[in-house]
Design a protein around this nucleic acid. Structure first.
Lengths: 141, 141
DNA sequence: TTTAAAGTTGCGTCGTTTACTAATGTATTG
DNA sequence: CAATACATTAGTAAACGACGCAACTTTAAA
């Protein structure tokens, strides 16, 4: 099954926000879209979803833009995926009435839970490139 | 992201084959389709894919049908999913040229690998109900 | 206070994918 | 050879994804 581009774009734009999170300033849609080679119009929809999920904060009006709602270390792939898609990452059908439908569904629910645990251990900090030399911190994951 | 029905159906029909694997006989498409409430014509396509992946064996002609190629304990969710979908369970885009595209892709590749390991620990035996007492045929319509 | 920059929202649409149906082909048995 | 059951391919309708666009609202700055 294909990971929706929407979710992948969300990860990219959040990585972009995380990379300059120390600076504290807001980033505008046009700038973010250019850096990640995305359509600005589409990116707006993604950022709106992320804002409703409490992952980013937006400021309107002139000099507005977006910034992370929390430090990058506290935002994980699991949270991003849940924000962009429904409650579960892998969504299996409740059942079609077949003899084994229930047990098959249960098995995939467990697989989904395992995946969620794995994704909860990948924070945004792993998506941002190591800082250029001379600038700020020099720790490595 | 939604688990394709095709994959879920594959799990169901394999669970059905596993439930009577001890008997040793082949099962016909019509019977399997009735037990799992699936379209026979569609089920054939799924079984063909499973045969090409070496998970089931088919016999043609009169008294033909399907049976598992190996014991149910040796067939896992991971193998079934790989057979029905491409090589990877979670398929993320190679990248659109954005600054963070590569790292985001890598992260999802790792998430996929973790998922594959989890699914490799769920064998077919977990998809079949515990044998009913009396050991009789329970064909119900 | 005006103005223009920037986010917010909703609708529309086009192309792809999915989940099937159906028709025809092929192998096996008696 | 004829009956039976799997195999293959083509076709299709509905759903979904990935956008584009336009009108609206908010707010900093001139």
């Amino acid at each position: 099954m294909r990971l929706p581009l929407k979710t992948e774009y969300a990860c990219q734009v959040l990585a972009q926000l995380a990379s300059r999170h120390d600076a504290g300033g807001v980033r505008q849609v046009e700038e973010l879209a250019a850096a990640e080679r995305l359509s600005p119009n589409y990116l707006v929809q993604i950022l709106t979803t992320l804002r409703q999920a409490g992952i980013v904060i937006s400021r309107r009006g002139k000099n507005g833009g977006y910034l992370l709602a929390r430090p990058p270390g506290e935002i994980t792939l699991a949270e991003i995926a849940v924000a962009m898609e429904g409650g579960s990452l892998i969504e299996s059908s409740p059942g079609n009435g077949g003899e084994s439908a229930g047990r098959v569904h249960d098995a995939w629910v467990r697989a989904n839970e395992a995946l969620m645990r794995s994704c909860a251990e990948i924070p945004l900090t792993e998506l941002v490139p190591p800082p250029a030399e001379g600038e700020g911190v020099d720790w490595v994951i």
